[in-house]
Amino acid sequence: MSGDSTRWTVHGSRRIYASPWVNLDLDEVEIPGGRRFDHHVIRFEGPSVGAVIVEDDRVLLTRRHRFTIGRPGWEIPAGWCDEGETPEEAVRREVLEETGYAISSAEHLVTQYSLAGISTHQFQFFVCGGVVQQGEADKSETSQLGWFTWPEVRALLTDGEIPDGCSAAALTFFLSTRR
């Protein structure tokens, strides 16, 4: 947006850490008013995808333990886009890996940046349907699968049983725009 009085100016960037998954940079920024300082930025090479799988007015969620927060929770299937893969191809692959189900439809729901103040990480969410079981869920990614009604999803969100912010955002967006 031209003339935005809240626009920050980046004067330089220095890579502090690099990996195939994530990079950490220290950017020298100037905020409106002229103050300059170093700001950490987490940069990702590509987007991630997530699937709100809807079938017969229920949604399929995966349960897994996240060591980073020290607890399990329910989540939508999600993951990285591999190099050369479109987001739609990635969401189909992730759903199959994490649930054992193939999907016949994937419609873009919303794109969001969950930590826009410090990260370039983009999530593209899809509404998916037409599930057909083709195998088993990858046990390293999913400990349990569950089909939930929308009132049950609301209760899981309210009770903190969906601690993953991206899953909560996708499900809440679906509930607020599609239901």
Results as ranks from 00 to 15, higher is better:
Cys166Val: 09
Gly70Ile: 15
Ala102Ser: 13
Glu98Tyr: 03
His40Pro: 08
Pro47Val: 12
Gly73Cys: 11
Trp150Asp: 05
Asn23Arg: 12
Thr172His: 03
Asp56Arg: 15
Phe174Ala: 04
Val95Phe: 02
Leu156Asp: 03
Gly135Met: 15
Glu89His: 02
Ile118Trp: 12
Gln133Ala: 12
Gly3His: 01
Ile162Gln: 02
Glu107Cys: 01
Glu45Tyr: 12
Gln112Arg: 02
Val59Lys: 08
Phe44Leu: 06
Asp138Leu: 13
Arg178Ala: 06
Glu89Ser: 08
Thr6Cys: 05
Glu98Leu: 12
Ala51Lys: 08
Ser143Trp: 08
Cys128Tyr: 04
Gly33Thr: 05
Leu171Arg: 00
Ala51Asn: 10
His108Val: 04
Tyr113Gln: 07
Val52His: 06
Ala102Trp: 08
Glu161Ile: 02
Ala106Cys: 01
Ile53Cys: 07
Ile103Thr: 07
Glu75His: 11
Ala169His: 11
Phe125Thr: 06
Phe126Glu: 09
Ile16His: 04
Glu94Ile: 15
His121Trp: 14
Asp164Met: 12
Leu156Met: 13
Glu98Arg: 14
Arg154Met: 12
Val49Thr: 14
His65Asn: 13
Gly84Phe: 13
Gly33Pro: 00
Glu94Arg: 09
Arg35Val: 09
Gly12Gln: 09
Arg66Lys: 13
Gly79Cys: 11
Pro32Leu: 03
Glu94Tyr: 04
